[in-house]
Design a binder for these strands. Structure first.
Lengths: 153, 153
DNA sequence: TGTTATTAGTACGCGTTAGAACTAATTGCA
DNA sequence: TGCAATTAGTTCTAACGCGTACTAATAACA
């Protein structure tokens, strides 16, 4: 047996695999429910970010949603086609576009957001106690921080 | 202030957001490194699953990688073009195809897999202690299980 | 002021990703 | 046996998701 130094036996893989599997399990449920509401993940994220705001430029949206600007353009195009958002030229910076919900978009937000939250809630609450949620959150954020530090190579 | 029952204030969101953000932070690093090795995430996953095996049919690969079969077909096409895998008709079931690494694919596996593990390792080890890794793993799996249980509606 | 650098957003190419429709082969069962 | 249901894999569509290149506008500074 050649277990010694087998790269497949590294301890951190026992975190990486569950992270991937859990994320996917959560997202699959999440996504399927959102699609029933006639939106995609990315579209939903944009709607939620815009909800209860007077609108914001694209670069602000990419910060909040973690979409790249290239991706965002397409998502906004499709949301425009659906009549949920509109693009208004900025008055102070002519490079910039303000994106905001239409009346129909606001409607959608007010209907879809609470419904989706309510759908996900029981999965978390039956799986984890409040104190476990807190631990999980803290550990995840610690790991994230480690990946965000600049590499020094 | 209308905080009461605001759907945006649900406790579980304090887990969901870190889960998403951490996953993405990890995957961004992961992906960028894999691309330097001239593979994509999905291609890498397939290579790793096939590594050290005599080959396996597509349905086995989808189980291991969590890719859907539709996605897998395209990934296998590109790996075939790169000369890393080959498809051999199964002898026992004429519907089935056995996928296995070519000599070049085995070479790739032996070179790329350890390199990638070694690349990721320090990010985990500087961020979490061994006991934290264990807790994180356990909590993630608990959450996953809750999402995998059949909904009863 | 004039040029250079930066920033905002779009366009495009490649490779996923899920899901539905499809073909061919195999299994189950009446 | 013989037809129905299942299974293996491919094809197709729509939408991401990332990176690069591009245009236009603004900021920085020599």
């Amino acid at each position: 047996m050649k277990k010694r130094n087998d790269p497949g036996e590294e301890a951190f893989l026992k975190v990486l695999r569950p992270l991937v599997e859990t994320y996917r399990a959560v997202m699959r449920k999440d996504d399927r429910h959102i699609r029933k509401l006639d939106l995609t993940q990315a579209q939903f994220d944009v709607i939620v970010v815009l909800g209860e705001t007077p609108g914001m430029p694209c670069n602000k949206i990419t910060e909040e949603t973690l979409l790249t600007k290239g991706t965002l353009t397409g998502v906004l195009d499709r949301l425009t086609t659906k009549g949920l958002i509109e693009r208004v030229p900025s008055e102070i910076d002519r490079r910039s576009t303000i994106v905001r919900l239409t009346a129909q978009g606001t409607d959608c937000f007010e209907r879809v957001f609470p419904a989706h939250i309510a759908y996900l809630k029981p999965f978390f609450e039956r799986g984890l106690t409040p104190s476990e949620m807190q631990s999980l959150r803290a550990l995840l954020l610690k790991l994230k921080k480690s990946f965000e530090k600049e590499d020094k190579k």
